[in-house]
Design a protein around this nucleic acid. Structure first.
Lengths: 349, 349
DNA sequence: AACTTCAATGCAATCGATTGCAGAAATTTC
DNA sequence: GAAATTTCTGCAATCGATTGCATTGAAGTT
C-alpha cells in the first residue's frame, strides 16, 4: 500500500496517467483507452475517467508518448531565413496546416556556417517525424545520406527545387514564370533588359535565370554581361544592383528582378539619381510580397502562391509520415505563378 | 545470447544506446557517461565508445531523454501572426539565440478563435520547457491559471507588455516612444495630428495611444475623434484609415501610425487622391521594418530593437528554465526605441 | 601481505504512456 | 440453467536514456 504513504505530497507535480487512474479507480490502461478510443470503454467508466481528468488537470506527457509510439507528431521546418517576409508567410501557412492535422512545428533557421549541422541535431534524434525543406542550397548528398542509412526520413522539398526526381517536392514553375515576365517586357517593346539574379546556390534562382536567358535567346536578343547582377534577395542587394547598373555606362530600359525586395531596392536607389520607374526604366519583380501592391510604383511581379506552397508541402509531408502517401512514389507538385501587372512596367521608349 | 539470433535484421532501425554499448563492449551506462561527462570515463573506453557511435551512426533519442530528464530543451514561441515581417525578424533572432544555448523552438501562430487552446495543447504536455509570449492579447488570467496549478511554467512576455508586474517581460517603451514621435511632429509645427491605432486588445497599442494622447494634451492640442482610426496593423487597414480620413471632411497635416505597415497603406492610398506625403501630409510610422528605408518617401519611424527583443527575451527565458535566474524575482527589461527621421515628415504649412 | 582508498564500470530502477494477452463479467444461445 | 460468445478491464512488458548504488580491481599505505 505505498499509496497511503504518499498522501501528503509536499509540492504538487504534473499529474500522470497513474494519478488519473487512481482517481477514477481504474487502471492506467483504461485511462489510456478512454483517451484514444473512448468507444472501447463502458460509458460509466468513461465518465468517471473524464471526471478524473478534469479534477486532476491531467495533460498527456508527450515525451513518454513519443517514446512509446516512436512518433513525435512534430515536423521540422528548415528555411534559410525566417526573417524574410517571403518565407514567413509560408511558415505561417505551414503552422496552420500542421495544427489542423495535430502536428507541431519546430523551426530551424540556418545557423552558423555549417548548414548541415542541424540535420543531425534534430532529425535523427526523434524530435521530428519529417522535414520540410525550404532551402535548395543544402547539400543534397547529405540528405540522401539520411535516407540511405536505412532510415527513410520523410522529406519534402518545397519552393526551391532539389535537382533530384526521387525527392518529393512542391515547387513553382520558376523557369516558365521567368519567361512569362520577360515576355511581358518584350510585349511592351523592351529589348534592353537586365536581370538581378538571386543567390546562385538556390536552384530556383538558377531556374529563373535560365528562363530569362531562354526568353532572351528566343527573341534573338543579346544578354549584356554588365546588366546581370548577382544579388542576395534582400533590398540592400537591390541598391547594389542599381549602383552596378549605373556604373555600366548605359542603363537597360527594363530589369527583371529575381524577387520583389531587390526590385524595391533597385527602384529606390535609381530614384535617388533621378531615374524614375516606370518613366525611365521598367522593373518586374518576383513573388508579390505584401508591400508590392503598396509600393510606389506598385510592382508588376510574378505572384507566387505562397500559402498554397506551405499548405500543400505540409499536407504531402504528413501524408507521407502517416503512410497515406507512399514514400517510394515521389510526389511532384508544380504550382503556377501568375503575372500581376501593376505600374512598375510600361511601354518602352 | 540473443545477439546471435539477431544477426540478420531485415530492416535496419535507428540504433539505440544499447547498440552502441554492445558495439563497444561496455554497458549503456558507460555510453551515456561518455556522451554527457567524458572525463568520468577512462580514455581507452571513451575512444572505443566514440568509435562505436561513429560506426553505428547513433543519435540520441530525444523522447527518451526528455522523459527521463523531464526537460525537452525546447521553448514554445507564441505570436499572433508569424507572417508579419515585424514578428518574423524577432522569431529569427529567437531561433538563433535558442540554438546557441542548445534549445529548439516550437512555433505556434494563433489558431482559430480559441486563442488559449494551444496553451493546454503544448505547454503542459512537456513538449516545451517554457513559453515566449509575443502576444499581449492573450487572456492573462489563463496564464496565471497555469502558474497557480502548482506548475510554474517559465514564461516571458515579450514586446507586448502583460499588465502584470509578476510576469517576466522584455518590452520597449511604447508610451515614451509614441510621445517622442508626436514631439517630433510638434517640433515641425504640426498641430492637426491624427493617429492610426493598432488592434485594441494589444497592450502595446494602448500604450502608444496613451503616449499620443498625453503628448497632445501636454501641448494643449485637441484630439479630433474622426482623426482616430482603429486599424489592424496591416497595410490594408492603412488604406482603410486613409479612406476614413478622407471622409472626415478635413485632413490632418500629420498622422502618427501605430506601425509602419499601416503608414505605408495610408500613404499609398492618399497618393491615389493626389495627396502627397510629405508635401501635403506628414506621416510617422513605428517599428522601422525593412522596407521603411526603401519606401517612397523613406519613412520617419520609431525604430524598435527587434533583434534585441528576441535575443533578450530568449536569454531571460532560458535563464529562468535553467534556474540561473530566479522565477520569483521578475525580470523587467525595457528597451529603448529610437526616432529615425527620414522623409515622410516635414515642416508644417 | 593485508587493508584502505578511489577510480572505472555495471546493475537495475526509473520516467509515463501504450497495447497484446488473458482473465472477469456480462450477454446471448440452445 | 449451462455453455458459448462477446465486452470490458487489468497485468505487465515495452520504448531508450539516465543515475544512485554496488562491484571490481588497481594503486597506495603500513
Amino acid at each position: 500500500m505505498r499509496g497511503a504513504l504518499q498522501v501528503m505530497m509536499p509540492a504538487r507535480k504534473t499529474p500522470t496517467i497513474q494519478d488519473v487512474a487512481r482517481h477514477a479507480s481504474v487502471s492506467a490502461a483504461t485511462v489510456s483507452r478512454v483517451l484514444s478510443s473512448p468507444e472501447r470503454v463502458m460509458e460509466a467508466t468513461r465518465e468517471r475517467v473524464y471526471a478524473a481528468v478534469r479534477d486532476t488537470g491531467y495533460t498527456i506527457n508527450q515525451a513518454a508518448r513519443s517514446l512509446r509510439l516512436k512518433s513525435a507528431r512534430t515536423i521540422l521546418l528548415a528555411a534559410p531565413n525566417i526573417g524574410n517576409p517571403f518565407y514567413s508567410t509560408i511558415v505561417d501557412a505551414v503552422i496552420r496546416e500542421a495544427a489542423e492535422r495535430g502536428y507541431s512545428v519546430l523551426v530551424a533557421s540556418r545557423i552558423g556556417d555549417d548548414p548541415n549541422r542541424w540535420l543531425s541535431d534534430y532529425l535523427l534524434s526523434n524530435r521530428a517525424d519529417g522535414l520540410l525543406l525550404f532551402d535548395g542550397s543544402l547539400d543534397t548528398n547529405r540528405l540522401h545520406g539520411l535516407r540511405d542509412d536505412g532510415v527513410a526520413l520523410p522529406l519534402v522539398a518545397a519552393y526551391d527545387e532539389i535537382p533530384d526526381a526521387k525527392v518529393h517536392s512542391v515547387i513553382t514553375d520558376n523557369r516558365l514564370a521567368a519567361k512569362r515576365a520577360i515576355k511581358h517586357l518584350l510585349e511592351l517593346g523592351h529589348t534592353e533588359i537586365g536581370h538581378i539574379i538571386g543567390p546562385s546556390r538556390n536552384q530556383s534562382t538558377n531556374e529563373r535565370f535560365i528562363g530569362f536567358a531562354e526568353a532572351m535567346q528566343e527573341a534573338g536578343l543579346q544578354v549584356r554581361e554588365d546588366w546581370l547582377f548577382p544579388g542576395t534577395y534582400n533590398m540592400e542587394s537591390g541598391t547594389a544592383a542599381a549602383e552596378h547598373l549605373l556604373a555600366s555606362g548605359k542603363l537597360p530600359t527594363a530589369v527583371f528582378s529575381g524577387n520583389d525586395e531587390m526590385a524595391i531596392g533597385l527602384i529606390h536607389r535609381l530614384r535617388l539619381e533621378g531615374i524614375d520607374c516606370p518613366r525611365d526604366i521598367s522593373v518586374v519583380g518576383f513573388d508579390d510580397i505584401a508591400v508590392a501592391r503598396f509600393f510606389d510604383p506598385p510592382l508588376t511581379t510574378m505572384r507566387q502562391p505562397r500559402e498554397d506552397i506551405g499548405r500543400m508541402a505540409t499536407r504531402s509531408l504528413i501524408d507521407i509520415i502517416e503512410g497515406v502517401a507512399r514514400d517510394d512514389e515521389p510526389i511532384h507538385i508544380v504550382l503556377n505563378s501568375e503575372l500581376v501587372i501593376r505600374e512598375s512596367t510600361r511601354r518602352a521608349g
